[in-house]
Amino acid sequence: MEKQPHLLLWKAVFVLIMIGLGFGIYAGSKSIDYTWRWERIPQYIINTEATTVRSPFDGTATIEKGNKLVVTSDYGDDPLVIKKFDNLLVNNGDLVFEGDPLVEVENWNIGPLTWGLVMTLQLSVVSLVFAVVIGLFAGLARISTNPALRYLSVTYIELIRGTPLLVQIFIFYFFIGTVLDLDRFTAGVAALSVFTGAYIAEIVRSGIQSISPGQMEAARSLGMNYVQAMVNVILPQAFKRTLPPMAGQFINLIKDSSLVSVISITDLTKAGREVVSSTFAPFEVWFAVALMYLVLTGALSWAIQRLEKRLSASD
């Protein structure tokens, strides 16, 4: 009889190893005499601190009915009217000087790390759309019978895959960006989508070539032209087959987007660097940044797994 593996035992081993790793990190940080200041991090994600509104000029504060604060200027400037606030810091009739606190407004301010996350998300989504379009056409051109299209596609793929993304970003920003007068964001998106498109092209090509030639023949024998056969028969099947490698490529794109911080786009990585310099808490910040990337990539791979499940109905 086959020996039953002790599943529970090995799961316990896994948990023990993870605990050991965690302890190792803790012990390591102790040994280098580092003070963890996790409490400094949340304010850079969401800032709930009240902001204080200060008087822009010398004048007199009056509280009018309806809880409205009006500050009349001594020098004839337009009066300052504040209708919504949470804490009043002056009394009716107080004389105020320029810079004096008037009221506190409690609101949720989005911190720089969250702005960075939003920028990374924007970069990734826009680049992804362009990359898929570029990759689809380059992949189709790669298997075309027309030599001009085929060689163009091969040249594109080899050029892009053979040079580092960082160098491409510099070329896109400093050379192409200058020639075509592109802003940072456009140059960043262009570099990322052209880079990822080359990899997607190869995925598309292998996906199409993995479909049996009989499928194309059957579609053509039914009177479909090449484009109809591609769109209705070949690509839907290739799409399903290429989902796993596509997912990997999309995740790579999100991670690669961190490189555009070199052209001063304030993405999550650059935001992290800025926060480090104002908190002096590099360990905490980089762990937090890593976790935020993980949330993005994790959500994407979850979504693609869901899609795969839905498409598996015909298996």
Binding site: G214, A218, A219, R220, S221, M224
Partner: peptide
Amino acid sequence: NKVREEVGMVFQSFNLFPH
């Protein structure tokens, strides 16, 4: 493509569209 509309074909390996 017009001619092929008039000429149906059945293959040894069926070649049904699996999706």
